[in-house]
Write a protein that binds this DNA or RNA. Structure first.
Length: 287
DNA sequence: AAGAGGCCCTGATAGC
DNA sequence: TGCTATCAGGGCCTCT
């Protein structure tokens, strides 16, 4: 589920529903996420008041009123569920926000507020949650993270410098969070299709024009997806319990053997493994 | 040092 | 039905 647009949708719903609320109780059922949840985690965040929720690339950041922080990464299969009291589904197995049905298993963390609870579910446990005492520690955690596609520093000079003499293919570059952060496996394929760049092409072989297209379409695809409420493959639902709609706009992802959408192109969409991630592209119009 | 590949983990689905 | 293999939206670590 979670690339930048999906995390943005979750962020919006969290900010809307728990901002200014105070944590009343924290329950951790399984501490073994990507990083082990520290023993004092519950104690540390209990009674804290939420100042706001922000997002950085694929990370959710909970800002507490005392200038401490809680970082959440959803990994591959993490989902956030909001259950509201005064809704008939509270304390049942049906959540009102984010998902219609709260999964039966893997609800690892539960954070209770007045009349609302936030549940972190993650079957594969590639995600994590982590507390930070101050802004310095938080910044240090992000020290190697590349700019978001929306950032002004993701410009032609930056890209050109990074691509110089690099044999790595462009698809891998887009997935490398140290280069640019927020793009995942779905959007990497989608962006390169719009750029008309073959995903296997070596970064050093890209022209300045190619680089400009990458800047433009990275922003474009992610913004479009956010507008559509993200991509719903599997059960992802947005804040209102509705599915995202961007998956309907996929031009290549999961479209193996189907016709290329580009006007005048007779190509067929191909699927190819690039460093163990499936990659979709049209080998006729993406050169 | 860059770049490829393994690995963490569970669940859904396809094929026999 | 039940087994096995393959694949999933991520990213860290290791090896060459």
């Amino acid at each position: 589920m979670p690339e930048l647009p999906e995390v943005e949708i979750v962020k919006q719903s969290l900010d809307k529903k728990i901002k200014f609320k105070k944590i009343q109780k924290v329950l951790v059922r399984n501490r073994n996420l990507r990083f082990k949840i520290e023993p004092k985690f519950e104690k540390k965040i209990n009674n804290k008041k939420i100042k706001k929720i922000t997002r950085l690339s694929k990370y959710l950041i909970i800002h507490f009123s005392d200038c401490t922080y809680c970082l959440i990464h959803l990994g591959m299969s993490g989902t956030i569920h909001l259950l509201e009291k005064n809704r008939k589904n509270y304390n049942t197995n049906t959540s009102f926000y984010s998902f219609e049905k709260l999964p039966k298993k893997h609800n690892h963390i539960e954070i209770n507020f007045h009349k609302i609870k936030v549940i972190y579910n993650d079957p594969r446990r590639f995600g994590f949650i982590k507390f930070f005492e101050n802004k310095n520690d938080l910044s240090y955690f992000f020290k190697d993270l590349g700019p978001e596609p929306f950032s002004n520093s993701f410009d032609i000079n930056y890209i050109h410098k990074k691509f110089k003499d690099k044999n790595k293919n462009i698809k891998n570059f887009l997935l490398d969070q140290k280069f640019v952060s927020g793009i995942g496996n779905i959007y990497a394929s989608e962006i390169l299709f719009l750029c008309k760049i073959n995903p296997s092409k070596k970064a050093k072989d890209l022209s300045k024009k190619d680089c400009k297209k990458i800047i433009y379409f990275s922003k474009y695809v992610l913004k479009q997806s956010i507008k559509k409420g993200g991509s719903s493959i599997r059960d992802f639902k947005n804040t209102e319990g509705n599915s995202g709609k961007f998956q309907k706009e996929f031009r290549v992802y999961q479209r193996e053997n189907l016709n290329c959408f580009k006007k005048g192109c007779n190509g067929i969409i191909k699927k190819k493994n690039i460093t163990n991630r499936s990659t979709f592209f049209c080998d006729t119009c993406q050169n």
